[in-house]
Nucleic acid binder design. Sequence first.
DNA 1: GCGACAG
DNA 2: ATCTTGTCGC
Length: 218
Amino acid sequence: MIMTFLIENALRAQKILSKLVIIQPINISMINIIAGLDVSYKDGLGCAVAVAYDSKNRALTTYSQYCEKVAIPYIPGFLAFREAPLMIKALLNLMSKIHIDITLVNGHGMAHPRKCGIASHIGVVLNIPTVGVAKSFLYGDVIRIGDNEAIVIDNTIVGYILRRNSKKIYVSIGNKVTAEDAANIVLNLWNYSYILPEPLRLADELSRKTVKKLAAKL
DNA sequence: GCGACAG
DNA sequence: ATCTTGTCGC
């Protein structure tokens, strides 16, 4: 009963937020610091980590974290209502320490039933450039463009599917980027042996270590 | 009604 | 996401 209430309002919020997404080119040559956002869980505790990655020196610069007991369940299509609050707090803390040019979020952007995945959700709320990077498909039509595959919704390319050996990742517009720029930015951060771009791989690794230590103390 | 379903 | 050891493969 309480969930129907939440979903009804969450749907309304997503429809509003999706209309506020800005699709515009970004100057990739001017991008220096890229943030990566991820959340790990243990015994109801969620730990979000926001890393700042220097794309020029190819190294982790610094990072922030925010942990909290999470009450909202994961429901496909509504991931942002569970994870965005934690990610945003970690990211705002990181932004107070260093300038961030663009943020990669673990989850989809516009490749979502209402074109409002967690990457777009966060991008619109904070009015910053974001890119969604997911490890599994959620929504949209897949079309082939030469050697590449794109994700199309409402006759618009919202993202691309990047392949590496047998694995794939789904990169889509979060906010203030084009699908092409989003894909190229992720390609530039692709490290030889991992499927995830470096900022997200590091955020994933750090959030797991963090939640493991904290949950053990509780 | 049936199947799909980010993390 | 998480629960979990060894094991197949590049």
